[in-house]
């Protein structure tokens, strides 16, 4: 049966939507490259990786080392994901398999609300509550640790809701088999549900990591923003995103261009992450 005319129209419309969605990043990358070009051309990539510090306001003769910011971004994101992935996946399992129906419903709603709290509120809370608390143990308080904790809280809903969605989509028959075999709940979850939902959970984690890498305001408020490679959890750090947000407001021509290189560096980092996931995952992540 040949496809009807309506079907062909529909396919065209959907293809167009997909092209738009996929093409958006091309526009944004082009924008970043155009804005970053003056700095890249005059300073060169090597100085962004090998200069002695970050003092871009001095123009082309300044220092442009992005490595501490790259390290800070990676460290704070890794710390956040280390907390958020287990907590999020366990939250999803709780919701799906352990909580009574009413509790599960309320818990889900709560996580949904958590997803919509503005980063400035998280940041403000972190600055007023969390940071003074850390300061008591190790000043200055604004630190890698504070950033990772706040960031974990912020991306937890993404992990939890997408993981729950993945678990929910498993066919009922899986569990009927498990019940028939008399498997316990934990065994069912560990050896049946989690492996079967792994691709979905993995995709959620990649998305959440990307989100954490790109987060700006909250991180800016609690991380301390000192340009240095962190040596402990209590060291203040500056992320690539905070670097842009902190300095963009007063950056003149050349400085501004250098800040867009931070943006490009962040995109590079995400690109690396994506290809690493593709390489490392046992099943193709982008099937």
């Amino acid at each position: 049966m040949s496809p009807s005319r309506g079907d062909r129209w529909l396919a065209g419309a959907l293809g167009l939507a997909a092209a738009l969605a996929g093409g958006a990043i091309v526009l944004i990358l082009a924008f970043l490259v155009i804005e970053a070009w003056p700095a890249l051309r005059q300073v060169g990539l090597s100085r962004f990786l090998g200069d002695s510090g970050w003092l871009p306001a001095a123009g082309p003769d300044g220092n442009f080392n992005l490595v501490p910011m790259l390290a800070g971004t990676v460290a704070v994101t890794a710390g956040a994901m280390l907390l958020a992935v287990p907590a999020g996946v366990i939250s999803a399992i709780f919701c799906r398999y352990y909580a009574p129906l009413g509790v599960s419903h309320i818990y889900r709603r709560l996580i949904e609300v958590l997803a919509g709290i503005p980063s400035v509120v998280y940041g403000f809370w972190g600055l007023v509550v969390l940071v003074p608390w850390i300061t008591r143990f190790r000043p200055p308080g604004q630190s890698l640790l504070a950033g990772a904790l706040i960031l974990a809280l912020m991306v937890l809903p993404t992990v939890a809701l997408l993981a729950e969605s993945a678990l929910r989509s498993l066919p009922r028959s899986y569990f009927e088999g498990a019940a028939a075999l008399g498997l316990g709940r934990f065994t069912t979850v560990r050896s049946l549900a989690l492996p079967a939902a792994a691709p979905g959970i993995g995709a959620g984690c990649v998305l959440a990591t990307a989100r954490a890498l790109g987060e700006t305001m909250a991180v800016l408020m609690v991380c301390g923003n000192v340009v240095q490679v962190p040596t402990s959890f209590f060291d203040p750090i500056r992320t690539l995103t905070a670097n842009i947000a902190l300095e963009m407001a007063y950056a003149t021509q050349f400085h501004r261009s250098a800040l867009f290189v931070s943006g490009l560096a962040l995109m590079g980092l995400v690109g690396l992450l994506i290809s690493a996931v593709e390489r490392l995952s046992p099943k193709p992540a982008y099937e």
Binding site: F124, L127, V128, V131, P132, T135, P139, P140, G141, Q142, L220, M221, G224, N225, V226, V227, P236, R238, A245, L246, A249
Partner: peptide
Amino acid sequence: DVVIGDNQQGIKTVQGN
């Protein structure tokens, strides 16, 4: 030890430390 952006961030930082 800490780099900030807005005034309010500075006040909150001193207030808590």
